[in-house]
Nucleic acid binder design. Structure first.
Length: 329
DNA sequence: AACTCGGGGAG
DNA sequence: CTCCCAGAGTT
């Protein structure tokens, strides 16, 4: 019997919805642009609202339609994506745009959306619900956390997905899915936060088992963290006059397809002691120490000379942007 | 089911 | 420092 929870959530949302650049406000009854919804959902995958807010408008201004994006060179899209991380998203975004144009527009069902590159379970449900008003159970990490707390689930989310799915289906049942999804995500971001949840502001607190337990922040339990391995590598700083030699990384894998400083593949292990200039960069599953070595000959390398005064337009991912910043300081 | 894949912001 | 974020694809 989720009706009371749904009413409490939707009422609270209509009162306090965040005003976000990609969002249609609660109660919006006009046409919706699936391109905007899709783009925002891909950008927001594992990326905070604050970060996306600074990049969404510029991206949309450069490519206002899915047709424009499909026609753009992939390298331009990757350069625009630089600094956002998880670059497979940008490669899949391009492939998805071309598929959508080829089929004459975005499909409006969750199942058909799910078949497109870069659109997984979450994004398919979110786009179907938010852009097309379809019923769908939209489950992201916010929804998982809210449900884990409502029911005081005592297993890590990763090993309790089936139960969370069933509880989420029930929570969404019969309600407008797009508004429910956004209500739950706002709740998770602003009230039912991972740490220091603001239960005194929560419209569901009287119905929440974790709140009743007295220690809501302990739900859901976090899996044990694992150690982050070390890697090291070398990047070559090859400068002639006012230009720098850059290369493009292999299409798949780490920083796939991105502009970069040339250099050999990175190695496992702790970096050898060295006084040379180096930058340290922490990725999700390893930490890298990149030594920067000056060279004057790019022979044997495939790349291009890039003007140093326009390096910010080269589309370097953050690791190499920091390395260049260090060398130019 | 476990890995791979970035980076920034908050505490 | 640590943790987390509107996850997806591969193995």
């Amino acid at each position: 019997m989720p009706a009371n929870r749904q009413i409490a959530l939707l009422d609270h949302y209509r009162q306090s919805a965040r005003d976000l650049p990609w969002r249609y406000p609660p109660g919006h009854d006009g046409p919706r642009d699936p391109y905007r919804v899709w783009l925002s959902e891909i950008m927001l995958q594992q990326t905070s609202v604050a970060t996306v807010t600074t990049r969404f408008a510029r991206f949309l201004e450069r490519w206002p339609t899915v047709e424009a994006l499909a026609a753009a060179p992939l390298d331009d899209l990757l350069a625009e994506w630089a600094g956002l991380g998880y670059y497979a998203r940008a490669r899949n975004l391009h492939a998805c745009a071309q598929a959508v144009v080829a089929m004459g527009g975005f499909p409006d069902s969750e199942a058909a959306l799910r078949q497109l590159p870069g659109i997984g379970d979450y994004s398919a449900a979110a786009i179907a619900a938010i852009a097309f008003g379809r019923p769908a159970t939209v489950i992201d990490t916010n929804v998982e956390r809210v449900i884990a707390r409502l029911h005081a689930l005592d297993r890590p989310v990763r090993s309790d997905r089936k139960r969370i799915r069933a509880l989420a289906d029930d929570l969404y049942s019969g309600a407008p899915a797009g508004e429910m999804a956004q209500a739950l995500m706002d709740l998770g971001a602003t009230i039912c936060r991972p740490a220091n949840p603001a239960c005194h502001l929560c419209p569901l607190s009287t119905d929440c088992a974790a709140y009743a337990s007295g220690d809501p922040a302990s739900f859901p339990p976090r899996p044990p963290k694992k150690v982050r391995p070390e890697r090291f590598g070398t990047a070559w700083w090859i400068r002639r006059d006012d230009r720098l030699f850059l290369v493009r990384r292999p299409a798949r894998g780490m920083l796939g397809g991105m502009a970069a400083l040339p250099g050999p593949e990175w190695q496992d292990g702790a970096p050898p002691a060295c006084k040379a200039v180096s930058v340290r960069h922490v990725f999700t599953h390893f930490a890298l120490t990149l030594r920067i070595e000056e060279r004057d000959d790019p022979s044997g390398l495939e790349g291009w000379w890039h003007p140093l005064d326009r390096l910010d337009e080269a589309g370097l991912p953050t690791l190499y942007a920091r390395a260049a910043e260090r060398m130019l300081a």
